[in-house]
Design a protein around this nucleic acid. Structure first.
Length: 867
RNA sequence: GCCGAAGUGGUGGAAUUGGUAGACACGCUAGACUUAGGAUCUAGUACCGCGAGGUGUGGAGGUUCAAGUCCUCUCUUCGGUACCA
């Protein structure tokens, strides 16, 4: 009985068994109900981190559970293999993105295999392979043909010194991360997908995703950001052109005392041209071009603007109002111009005060008398119109329609819907991505590459530029092309590559038929497997990846390629894995192994012996060094213990705080079950598990254990099935194990032994999705043949879940004062009587007459006496 | 800034539709076994108080016989914010 569980022997044994018997290989089987479970595929960064381990463990448990429930389960794995880190690593380590990526893939694949995850590895894909991105290029051509893809000019972060485009994360405080040069906004022609065509459909279906967490659909709705309002035309003074604005508050149009254009607005230059403001405006536009134009970045800068020198006509008042350009107006939202109503919008108010512009009150609630000169903030609420000519006195909410209709009759406006959602810019001026399959011809313009030329291969012999730019434009063998239309020899291939979100928007369909070479996927396979029944991944993808995927399915649906629109029926967004940071005064951030306890018990740096400061618990990241290497865990504890801890430490949707002590605890539990099983094996021989009803059992102890075992089956099944709360499922099994530990096997009678055997076998079945290797091994020791995977999930007996007695909780004025046990079938009157007769209760009631007695008989039986 | 979450013992966390706050585990304390233990087993462990008892789910109010759970306000931390994936 000294023997401990030895993962280093047991785990490879069963991994080999599963592989040999191809237990995870699946094919379409119309006789079985399918279940497609998918975890978000990883970026091959080099090593699996704990966040991956957690994500894939959650998925693996559900997969194994569903298999035991009889489903035909698809559970694939692959690699989101294009992306910026490969380029950075290639520059830093003087290697090639492809070499770096493929190496990472093979080491990460080995790690995943050691974790015992039940993937059908025959379906593995890597998005950087031409066989994959060929079909992405194919789809791009289809979208181009259907006008779902188009080109327009838009801005990128540009470092003049490095001559490169920078990602947002490569811009640090307006400076290039490599050379600290101030970053500029540069205008480039880029490709876009017309996701806005589906804005309404994507929005409406947010409410038809019952399997998604509300927080995700709410975020998506807000991201799409539908707003209803009006589009108004402000005639430019002295010209026939108009400036169009979108506003949700046309009721305030009489208060529009100036106009603001985005600095990128095409009219900014032309309006100021030739005026004395020309230079000032140009300088301002230049200044704004060094400012980050993201929603997050906008907040960092002081709101400011300049007068363009031009005026436009307020369509309601007929007044001349000045046209400004301002840094808080975004070209990408609405029309890139706003009518400014300082009395009704805080930003406009601040702007007006700053530049001495008129603040005219047009809406005020009853009983107020706002004055534009003395107000200290804008009034954004509803009220009644003032200073609005014939509309004075009208309720502002009603005025929205009335004024829009009035302006429409004058030809100056109309009702309009605007979305915050912008079209998806997919062009990346990078090397390590899927080439965009078009050619630019001096004569024919943009010409799609013929389908038969696909894939347009990314040349793998290119060397990266030191400063991070893409080598593709300089690589003649790639960039020079014949025009497919006219045959001109000096046409130029598009050297941009696609956003990596494009690959991840459809990979889950590719898994259904990963080697299919006649299209993106085999329609028959997709018909059987898709959509994904359960998708699992980080909550950080709540908007972009998930929205793009939803969009892509709509595109394929429109193209008639699939018959569904929503890719993921159920979604689980798991929390991050966090750990405390440690810093040494001399050496900065420390890895966990670089800080050790000295004899006094305080943490010191292994390099200099100075005291280590323990910092906040934050998401594990290499830069903060608060990481745990799964390889070390595997070596020390094995896969099953690591899996157990990931599941036990927190429910999946919550952040998980890593704790070495907690892992030790999981290890202890695994060994506790191991010893229990071995002891039973030794002492209970020749018996079969009990399977009758609890009432057939003669001893109270056996009955109690049997009920507990049945309750455990119910609890674990519910927790996995309904909420994925594995932590409570595990604690339920722990409770049962604790009960078994209190039983003396040597003195147990035959009946008891049968119930113990029943309990133990079910513990193994219930734990098998979580501790697959461990449970296989014990199952085998108990003389079973085959894999535990092929067993059915246990059923509990409904007639053996409840005990004969219940505990009644007695409260006086809502405070717990006493408890008693009573026969479960007893009536309410008896409960009241018993409670009132209770000595402790009498003390609290005294001689007062109870005002009210409330008896609750739900999960708990409770009686509250109000005096 | 905007959008979305989360705050419960020394720690991670548990608590259908409001109904015994702290399951289960870590840590700690004590005991047992042991040549030894960082193994194992048993017991105890929210806080204050000698006690009766009181107080407790980030903070402040409110609804209710009853609030971790519902409502209002507020603080802190985290995620996303369109070129990290």
């Amino acid at each position: 009985m000294e023997e401990r569980y030895h993962p280093e022997l047991v785990e490879p044994k069963w991994q080999a068994y599963w592989k040999e018997n191809q237990l995870f290989k699946v094919t379409e089987n119309p006789l079985k109900e399918k279940y497609y479970l998918l975890e978000m595929f990883p970026y091959p960064s080099g090593k699996i981190h704990i966040g991956h381990v957690r994500n894939y463990t959650i998925g693996d448990v559900v997969v194994r559970y569903k298999r035991m429930k009889g489903f035909n389960v698809l559970h694939p794995m692959g690699w989101d293999a294009f992306g910026m880190p490969a380029e950075n690593a290639a520059i830093d380590n003087n290697t090639h993105p492809a070499a770096w990526t493929y190496e990472n893939i093979s080491s990460m694949r080995e790690q995943l295999k050691k974790m015992g995850f039940s993937y059908d590895w025959d379906r593995e894909i890597a998005t950087c392979r031409p066989e994959y991105y060929k079909w992405e290029q194919w789809l791009f051509l289809k979208m181009l043909e259907k006008k779902m893809a188009y080109r327009k000019e838009s801005y990128v972060n540009w470092c003049e010194k490095c001559q490169t485009v920078l990602a947002n994360e490569q811009v640090e405080q307006d400076k290039c991360w490599r050379c600290s040069q101030t970053v500029q906004q540069k205008k480039l022609w880029q490709w876009f997908f017309k996701i806005t065509d589906y804005a309404q459909d994507l929005l409406v279906h947010c409410d038809k995703l019952p399997g998604w967490p509300d927080k995700v659909t709410v975020m998506q709705k807000n991201w799409i950001g539908r707003s209803v309002g009006s589009e108004l035309k402000f005639k430019i003074h002295g010209q026939e052109n108009n400036i169009e604005v979108f506003t949700t508050r046309p009721d305030t149009v009489f208060g529009a005392t100036f106009m603001c254009l985005a600095p990128e607005h095409p009219l900014v230059e032309s309006l100021s041209k030739g005026t004395e403001k020309q230079d000032e405006v140009a300088a301002f536009v230049q200044k704004v071009s060094t400012q980050e134009r993201s929603a997050e970045g906008l907040e960092k800068y002081e709101k400011e603007g300049v007068f363009t020198g031009a005026f436009c006509i307020n369509p309601a008042t007929g007044e001349k109002i000045p046209v400004y350009t301002a840094n808080f107006v975004l070209m990408g939202y609405g029309t890139g111009a706003i009518m400014s109503v300082p009395a009704g919008d805080q930003r406009d108010f601040d702007f007006a005060r700053k530049y001495g512009l008129e603040i005219r009150v047009v809406v005020q609630p009853k009983g107020e008398l706002f004055d534009g000169n003395t107000m200290d903030q804008a009034y954004t609420g509803e009220g009644f119109l003032v200073n609005s000519s014939e509309f004075n006195g009208l309720e502002s909410a009603k005025a929205i329609d009335v004024i829009t209709d009035w302006l429409e009759k004058k030809g100056r406006g109309k009702k309009a819907v605007s979305y915050r959602l912008r079209d998806w810019g997919i062009s990346r001026q990078r090397y390590w991505g899927a080439p965009i399959p078009v050619v630019h011809c001096p004569d024919c313009g943009v010409v799609p590459v013929p389908e038969t030329d696909l894939p347009i291969r990314l040349p793998e012999d290119a060397n990266l530029l030191e400063k991070g730019g893409s080598p593709l434009p300089y690589l003649d063998s790639f960039a020079k092309a014949f025009c497919p239309e006219c045959g001109r020899k000096d046409a130029k291939r598009d050297t941009d590559t696609m956003d990596t979100f494009v690959e991840s928007s459809w990979y889950y369909l590719r898994y259904c038929s990963p080697r299919y070479d006649e299209g993106m996927f085999d329609p028959k396979a997709v018909k059987y497997w898709a959509p994904v029944d359960q998708y699992i991944g980080g909550v950080e993808h709540a908007v972009l990846h998930l929205l793009y995927s939803r969009y892509f399915m709509r595109v394929l649906h429109t193209l008639g390629m699939i018959d569904f629109k929503e890719p993921f029926t159920r979604l689980l967004t798991q929390g991050m894995v966090c750990k405390e940071t440690m810093t040494c005064p001399d050496h900065g951030y420390l890895f966990p192994e670089e800080a050790l306890k000295d004899d006094k018990g305080s943490l010191v740096c292994t390099k200099c012996n100075k005291d280590v400061a323990v910092g906040r618990v934050i998401k594990m990241s290499k830069s903060k060094k608060n990481v745990v290497d799964p390889n070390e865990l595997l070596e020390k504890y094995g896969a099953d213990v690591t899996r157990l801890f990931c599941l036990f430490a927190a429910p999946p949707e919550r952040d998980l705080e890593w704790s070495e002590d907690g892992v030790e605890g999981s290890n202890r539990f695994v060994n506790r079950v191991w010893r229990l099983a071995l002891e039973c094996l030794e002492k209970i021989d020749g018996f079969k598990p009990f399977t009758g009803a609890a009432s057939d059992l003669s001893s109270e102890q056996a009955k109690a254990l049997y009920i507990k075992a049945n309750q455990t089956i119910q609890k674990v099944t519910d927790d996995i099935d309904k909420s994925f709360h594995f932590n409570t499922a595990i604690s339920a099994v722990m409770e049962l194990v604790n009960v078994l530990y209190t039983i003396d096997l040597d003195s147990a009678d035959a009946e008891m032994k049968k119930v113990i055997l029943f309990s133990l076998e079910n513990i193994l079945l219930l734990l098998s999705p979580i501790l697959p290797h461990f449970c296989e091994e014990l199952f085998e020791k108990f003389g079973k043949t085959g894999s535990i995977l092929e067993q059915s999930w246990p059923e509990y007996r409904k007639d053996s879940l409840k005990t004969d007695e219940i505990i009644v909780v007695v409260q006086v004025n809502g405070k717990l004062r006493s408890k008693f046990t009573i026969d479960a079938g007893i009536g309410e009157a008896v409960i009241k009587e018993t409670a009132l007769a209770d000595e402790k209760i009498k003390k609290y009631i005294g001689d007062k007459e109870p005002k009210k007695i409330i008896v609750i008989r739900k999960k708990q039986t409770l009686i509250n006496i109000v005096v």
